[in-house]
Amino acid sequence: MKTTAFTKTYNKRVVLNLPELELPKGQITAVIGPNGSGKSTFAKILAGIERADDRRPVLSGVSVGYLPQKSFPFRMSTEKNILQNGNDPACASALMKALGIEALAGQSAKKLSGGETARMALCRILMRRYALLILDEPTAAMDMESTLAAEECIRRYCDETGCGVLLITHSISQAKRLADQIIVLHEGKLIEQGDTERVLASPREEQTRRFLEFFGV
């Protein structure tokens, strides 16, 4: 999948200016970068939630699923929330079990904790097959055990469906564990893109090196 080059301006300030990008199918691409580098805006524009300056879709003819940072729990049970995105109770049950929320199936989703809501939201988005799945910090509210289970589910989804996954993350270790390739954003610009091992082991750009050093990589 190829995105078109685009810019995004807020209040006369260019917050994103990106070239064409290749997002391979069946692979996980992690987007990393400091706060304010434009990661979430990039995700929203790809998902069609926000528009680029020229108002044209950046990806066309492709089904895109997008999990926002704070997903909304609908006023119904956890299981019904998940089944809103696909009428397959067996699949919903398997996902809930994998993410450790099967005991909460009948509970009102409004009563879930932050971490439980994040797990419910991940189950819900994984119910359907998208050509590109964008996950904006899906494990930010989860503990270590849930994070590892979530990562396993994301990897399995990617392998089984062959869809591309774009993972916005602040965690370099998560990118290392999960991603096949990494995109580094800085001040709205793409400063580096490449295989995970290569980018983490020998970054070509000074800004990437400094960013990774901060995280002890």
Partner: peptide, 19 residues
């Protein structure tokens, strides 16, 4: 917040309004 989630899931306007 609801709209960001429903559009992210790929729901249509009708389902969005129903929710």
């Amino acid at each position: 917040a609801l709209r960001e989630t429903t559009r992210g899931l790929g729901f249509g306007r009708l389902k969005e309004y129903r929710l």
